[in-house]
Design a protein around this nucleic acid. Structure first.
Lengths: 103, 103
DNA sequence: TATCATGTAACCTACTGGATTACAGTATAC
DNA sequence: GTATACTGTAATCCAGTAGGTTACATGATA
């Protein structure tokens, strides 16, 4: 419970962080080779690693195939981040009145 | 297991289906009022109900607030569908060679 | 020194969520 | 039967973004 509260205030980890800090080092592979194997440009990989762009469903499938993981695990990280951003960066959403409160 | 295999071949349900078939009828509410309470235009609701567009993270938060549900449950439906579409509608992704197969 | 890997910027394309406006059809109310 | 409301749909605009290409500067390394 306290963890949930804390987690909700903490910005979720961008999937690029995992790729940059864990996956690529463990593979001992350059970004260039990683991009080639994924079938995308070097820039797409670089910008993803540096959290300049979101991890798309298409990229989740690419990673899943290359790394033999479930695409879901990658996309779920991004979705969690997207939700957090919507909650925190769109203050107008707070004006929506729950139906239970107006019934 | 058999269910998983079967589920992977079946196109996941669009979140708009649930809104159209279950949520709105249960609320006994017009699309116009639903849209007003969500703070979006009538068209945004109509097109979502008819699966003409995806359910965005922003909309997931709106629905979560209005309906007192978790935004995650809505966004997860869309993510599952997005993944299924990437897997089935982008045949070039099948050309990615898993690292475990080339080691 | 020459090569490779990387970060970054500029620019382009295609797609998409959302808003607005408009029109046609179907109800329902009077 | 007429008016009002709800709905589906189309056209148009805008902003954001994933991905590509090209180019340049830098750092590391052979």
């Amino acid at each position: 419970m306290r963890n949930n509260l804390r987690d909700r205030n903490r910005k979720p980890t961008h999937p690029g962080t995992i790729l940059r800090e864990d996956v690529l080092p463990a593979l001992n592979m350059t970004q260039v080779e990683f991009a080639e194997r994924l079938g995308v440009s070097r820039l797409t990989v670089s910008e993803l690693l540096h959290e300049k762009r979101a991890l798309s469903p298409e990229m989740a499938v690419r990673l899943g195939r290359l790394l033999s993981t479930t695409p879901d695990s990658w996309l779920a990280m991004q979705s969690t981040l997207n939700l957090w951003q919507a909650l925190h960066e769109l203050p107008e959403l707070a004006e929506i009145v729950p139906l239970r409160a107006s019934a």
